[in-house]
Design a protein around this nucleic acid. Structure first.
Length: 700
RNA sequence: UGCACAUUGGCGUAGUUGGUAGCGCACAGGGCUCAUAACUCUGGGGUCGCAGGUUCGAAUCCUGCAUGUGCAACCA
């Protein structure tokens, strides 16, 4: 494997149209953060960039939905998302924004370079235009009747009923989903990147060079794209929100969001060096010292072949990061290419796909609100369940058991045991070590081995395995104490106990070093308890991190148990949220055949008043109502017993059909029918005049 | 519909070139009591989605089928 001088690590730019959930964390942000923390701890030259993706059609759409401006949307969600990352310990060197000037310039420069090299093609085509909303319509925003199966709700790109792929022009009776109007065809010009010209190169670069080191899901996805044959893809759009196409004849055109978004990594890097060299810090938060940095240093991180570029993303982004963006970089000519793109699969939640819009999700800010002092618990739980090779599952029960059985019982407990014993027997000072016994030598050997295997896992992007390694190290400590039983030995041989606790404390100090990568907040606490400065990975595995007589800090609990009711509450909250998000109009019954006015006027619909109500015996559905219809008082049976009690019906005004032929039910004749509206959830609601009217009032 | 990835004990999963299937949780029993009834040891439990094939030998390679997810659409 090639040895690199430095690393540029990116995490997918979150799209700033809404909050992000823990599935996003598991996909890209937690693994990238662990990777970077490890590299930093190992003293590597690494830069970790991310930022908000703030262009594309979905932003103005979200603005419409929230009744505000696009700018307000991106401001709101940029802040929300970044705050969450910070509180969860995701340690970017810079978290930038694609709406910044420097990003617009960088994207335009790269676009112009491709243009000037003659690598973009220009094409005029006819596209549907909504002349009420004054926008060109993306295929998705057009619905109409499917020419193949007659489904009236087929999208401009595909009919979901018969599965056939369509183009908007094929739809019968196309309509804009924005205004409901029929769209018109209009000519528009766009600039395309002919991806097919790079097929040969991609075959060489991905299919040959990365056959072994890219993950199966990533490699397979790329192979399927390349084998299917690539096509020219438009790199511009008709939209007024985004980066202006830097050409004279491109009024009203912006760069395609997938053209500019990955360039965001580059502009963030540029902004980073600009900010730290000028001292005008706006977004940069350097997580280590950047000595003698120059504004131009961004180039080293993006153009020097000795830099290793790694993109962390979710599986939905594979094609953009492995095919399209690399083609842009390659076409430009001066950039390095990603060495790896360790894309994760998706994380499900309690047996179902996570979805913010369906309300089936745990948003980052929701977690932080409910568990403000537990960022590491979430980090650990996600790390232990990362969807590295297939979709995985987050459940609150698992969250609880990971916390109680692993963080509390194994890691927290070991640290606590080592410290409490030292307090008790050695006045809270690190005891000196005597002659080592085989059991000591064995544990020291194992201690040295752990950081090595953990590092190897991380370098292969196997973060789940690496996390298990951390917990194994804590297990090693517990096992050592159980085997040596210092609390027993102390009665006969206090010096021997000194040796044991010295070694146990060295293990604790190692847990702080290794833990910093996975659980930074807890690692900090361990260091405070040990009264130790943060140490780097080069010290990991050492059995001499604490010197004899070194005074320890105060012992405190590292993690606390999570009780059942906390978990039950979260589950309830999740289900409630889903319910509140359910669309109002579900399964609306189709229209019945037309009737004439004469048909309608045959019905005698009038308002009556319930005088008496009682349950029908042996029926769980029927209520027997006595209704004042104005002309008479009559008995009506109504199948509403599961929705209304007899008591609450008495005195109510109801709408009834008074001339419906009488019908016998359960031995009693019903002389009319009370009208009800059935809600989406099957619940019945009374149909009443908005204000009380005289019984017998006719409805027409 | 096409392509890609996945399918392993009750649950969550590992299995890197084919060689008697590992781990965590849960479960049962033992040890210990320094520790947040935590720790530690031992044990039971899997014909590796289904059906074929290649091989001395297949969870692993090939074919077909089923199920799930993603992509394919100007959805970020």
């Amino acid at each position: 494997m090639k040895n690199f001088k430095r690393y540029t690590v990116t995490a997918a730019l979150p799209y700033a149209n809404g909050p992000k959930h823990i599935g996003h964390l598991a996909g890209a942000y937690i693994p990238s953060d662990v990777y970077v923390r490890y590299l930093r701890s190992a003293g590597k030259d690494v830069l970790f960039v991310c930022g908000s993706d703030e262009h594309g059609t979905a932003i103005p759409n979200q603005a419409l939905k929230e009744n505000t401006t696009s700018q307000a949307i991106i401001d709101k969600y940029h802040k929300l998302i970044y705050d969450c990352f910070k509180k969860l310990g995701i340690a970017f060197d810079i978290y930038h924004r694609t709406s910044e000037q420097i990003h617009h310039e960088t994207s335009q420069e790269i676009f112009l370079t491709l243009y000037n090299k003659g690598l973009l093609t220009e094409e005029v085509s006819e596209q549907y235009y909504d002349d009420e909303a004054n926008v060109f319509l993306a295929d998705r925003y057009i619905v109409g009747t499917c020419p193949k199966c007659g489904n009236p709700n087929a999208y401009g790109d595909q009919c979901e009923k018969c599965g056939s792929t369509l183009s908007p022009r094929e739809l019968i009776n196309p309509k804009s989903t924005l205004t409901g109007k029929a769209p018109v065809l209009r000519e528009t010009k766009h600039w395309y990147l002919p991806l097919q010209n790079y097929e040969g190169w991609l075959q060489e670069w991905i299919l040959k060079e990365h056959a072994d080191d890219w993950k199966a899901n990533v490699y397979g996805q790329c192979k399927s794209w390349i084998d299917a044959g690539l096509q020219a893809r438009a790199m511009t759009r008709d939209l007024d929100w985004g980066i202006k196409v830097p050409l004279p004849d491109a009024e009203g055109k912006v760069l395609y969001v997938w053209f500019d978004a990955p360039i965001g990594y580059v502009s963030a890097t540029r902004a980073f060096f600009q900010e730290i060299t000028s001292g005008k810090i706006k977004y940069a938060q350097p997580q280590r010292e950047f000595k003698n940095a120059k504004a131009d240093d961004w180039k080293t991180y993006w153009q020097d072949p000795e830099t290793k570029l790694v993109h962390f993303i979710g599986k939905d982004n594979i094609v953009f990061h492995c095919i399209i963006f690399p083609i842009i970089l390659k076409a430009h000519g001066e950039f390095i290419l990603p060495d790896n793109v360790p894309a994760n699969e998706f994380m499900n939640l309690e047996g179902d796909k996570m979805s913010t819009s369906r309300g089936w999700s745990i948003e980052m800010h929701e977690y932080i609100e409910d568990f403000p002092d537990k960022p590491d618990v979430l980090r650990y739980c996600l790390l232990a369940n990362l969807p590295e090779s297939k979709d995985s599952e987050f459940t609150w029960k698992d969250f609880q058991s990971r916390n109680n059985n692993e963080l509390v019982a194994i890691l927290g407990n070991f640290i606590n045991r080592a410290l409490v014993l030292t307090q008790k027997y050695f006045d809270n000072k690190v005891p000196a070590r005597g002659t080592l016994q085989p059991v000591d030598e064995e544990v020291i050997r194992a201690l040295k081995e752990h950081p090595r295997t953990i590092a190897a896992s991380i370098e292969q992007y196997r973060f789940r395995e690496a996390t298990a390694g951390l917990m194994d190290l804590a297990r090693l400590g517990n096992k050592y104490l159980a085997e040596t039983e210092p609390w027993k030995v102390y009665k006969t041989d206090p010096a021997r106990v000194g040796t044991i606790l010295n070694i146990a404390l060295q293990i604790a100090a190692n847990l702080a070093i290794v833990g910093e990568v996975f659980l930074p907040f807890s690692a900090k606490k361990i260091n405070a308890m040990l009264n130790l400065e943060t140490k780097g990975w080069s010290d990991a595995g050492s059995d001499a991190l604490l010197n004899p007589t070194h005074p320890l800090g105060a012992a405190a609990l590292l993690f606390e148990k999570i009780e059942d009711d906390v978990i039950a509450k979260q589950l309830q909250k999740l289900h409630d949220k889903k319910k509140s998000m359910e669309p109002v109009t579900v399964d609306v019954a189709p229209l019945k055949p037309e009737v004439t006015f004469d048909d309608f006027s045959k019905l005698d619909i009038r308002v009556g008043k319930v005088l008496a109500a009682e349950k029908m015996e042996k029926s769980n559905k029927l209520l027997k109502l006595t209704i004042d219809t104005g002309v008479d008082k009559r008995t009506v049976l109504s199948g509403i017993a599961q929705h209304f009690s007899p008591e609450e019906m008495i005195g109510k005004q109801v709408t009834l059909i008074a001339n419906l032929a009488p019908r016998k039910m359960m031995g009693i004749e019903s002389q009319g029918m009370v009208l009800m509206a059935e809600d989406a959830d099957g619940k019945l609601k009374l149909l009443q005049p908005s204000e009380a009217v005289f019984p017998g009032s006719v409805v027409s």
